[in-house]
Design a binder for these strands. Structure first.
Length: 423
RNA sequence: GUGAGUGUAGCUCAGAUGGUAGAGCGCAGGAUUGUGGCUCCUGUGGCCGAGGGUUCGAUCCCCUUCACUCACCCCA
């Protein structure tokens, strides 16, 4: 076998799939609790969408996109994030005309050409939420609460840290940016090479630099908070109050910035320990100008994304509970045929049923055990002749003879009993 | 894109100054003819990542390459 999966793209094997389902199910449950509905955009879009949406001097757009020319000569890109796709869909279908408030989520793969590392893959999966058409602090607080609930439900609230900040709006951010640039210029000699470049292209990112000398240099840097305009300040205060009401435990972090250009006002990040250096489990924030940038109505929004791999990495084992009945048959053509009929009947009644003919009795039992079935129906010449079945409770190892005609009823009640014991 | 580490059975890993390799788990079968999990026995298993070089001979030394892992970077 010399064909292997592409670098940074992983198979999710059956043993891990249970965890993925649990995360997805949890997400869907919580989204519906908050009144969000699902929107599933395609995984590929025209390249311009991301150039306009994400910002063309971000790393994601500059060097991480899977962009190529299709057979028709169009430049297309495998989506590196979901927000731009969802907004494109909302605009294209005029969803905001039908309902000026849209609360949407989507779950699926994203693609970024990066060097793979723990918690970072070229195909990775996100749980994404977008909320459009509500500009007040309540919408922000509630959206953050939703993210917090989701993270707590999967990881427990003690395992995570939620950090919140306000980035201001296009009215007040330029003032801050200018002050910051001025400050950074005075620190030029101690900044790292990257930050020297960043201080012009994207000065906010310098605040987020991990290099020790930069962190120190930035200690006395001006804080966005001092530059927030009255409207942004009021908004942010409202968000914080709302978070308290929702019972969200968070910390304010004036240094928190986001990697994508479209964010305004409220931003947040949820980190967890145990993930190595890729410790952000979720991140997001408000984007008041993005819809109009993409050619839509001047409507604001707020959203977030979870990294599913990171969530799953922190979860530990999750076991699939198997219900149903394994059918063991004596090696005899007539018996096996009868067993086949039994299996069909069980399935028709909605009871999972499986068998493994063609091996020894012992081996069939072993498979029943390994697959985790609570019940095992045994059929042999004896049962066939007397119109009965032997049903074995795998956990207690007790067996009972039941009549063939009453199987469904009998097994249904045994399974219900079994379920009751486990719960 | 940069750096470091690692590549030996399906999995986790041993191994010898260079003489073509083992363990545990798994898997298959068995321990009275129709009964799983525990135990015991037996079996199954590997171009020792790929290519080249040195050598009588390399899985082990050298070079190249690929892959994986972690970190930088970036981000979910």
């Amino acid at each position: 076998m010399d064909i292997k999966a592409i670098r940074g793209m992983n198979d999710i094997l059956p043993r891990e799939a249970a965890r993925w389902r649990l995360v997805e199910d949890t997400a869907r449950r919580i989204f519906s609790l908050y009144g969000f509905s699902e929107l599933r955009p395609p995984v590929m879009e025209r390249t311009e969408l991301f150039l306009r949406g994400i910002g063309d001097d971000t790393d994601v757009v500059e060097k991480q996109m899977y962009t190529f020319t299709d057979k028709g000569g169009d430049s297309v890109t495998l989506r590196p994030e979901a927000t731009a796709c969802v907004l494109r869909s909302v605009i294209e279908h005029g969803l905001l005309n039908a309902d000026p408030v849209q609360k949407l989520y989507s779950i699926g793969p994203m693609f970024r050409y990066e060097r793979p590392q723990k918690g970072r893959y070229r195909q990775f999966h996100q749980i994404n939420a977008e909320r459009l058409g509500e500009d007040g602090p309540f919408a922000d607080a509630e959206t953050l609460a939703l993210a917090y609930d989701l993270a707590s439900a999967v990881l427990g609230r003690d395992a995570l840290l939620m950090e919140v900040n306000s980035l201001g709006c296009k009215a007040c951010r330029p003032g801050f940016k200018g002050a910051l640039e001025e400050f950074l210029a005075s620190k030029q000699d101690v900044l790292c090479g990257d930050c020297m470049r960043r201080m012009h292209t994207n000065p906010l990112r310098v605040l987020d630099c991990k290099v020790e000398s930069c962190r120190q240099a930035v200690q006395g840097a001006p804080s966005m908070e001092a530059y927030l305009c009255d409207a942004c300040r009021g908004h942010f205060d409202g968000v914080l109050k709302g978070l308290h009401v929702f019972g969200v435990r968070f910390e304010r972090n004036p240094r928190l910035v986001r990697g994508l250009d479209y964010y305004t006002r409220t931003t947040f990040e949820i980190t967890a320990v145990g993930l190595g250096s890729q410790n952000a489990v979720a991140g997001g924030g408000r984007y008041d100008d993005l819809l109009s940038i993409l050619g839509g109505p001047p409507v604001g929004g707020i959203g977030f994304a979870f990294g599913m791999e990171r969530l799953i990495m922190l979860m530990g084992e999750v076991q699939d509970r198997v219900s149903g009945c394994f059918v063991v048959a004596q090696a005899d053509p007539a018996v096996e045929l009868a067993a086949l009929g039994l299996i069909a009947e069980l399935r028709a009644a909605g009871i999972p049923a499986e068998a493994a003919f063609g091996r020894s009795f012992k081996a069939q039992m072993r498979r029943a055990d390994r697959a985790g079935y609570p019940l095992c129906a045994i059929i042999g010449e004896e049962e066939l002749a007397s119109g009965t079945l032997t049903v074995r409770d795998m956990q207690s190892a007790s067996q009972a003879k039941i009549t063939r005609s009453g199987v469904i009823q009998e097994i249904t009640s045994m399974l219900a009993e079994n379920k009751g014991e486990r719960a």
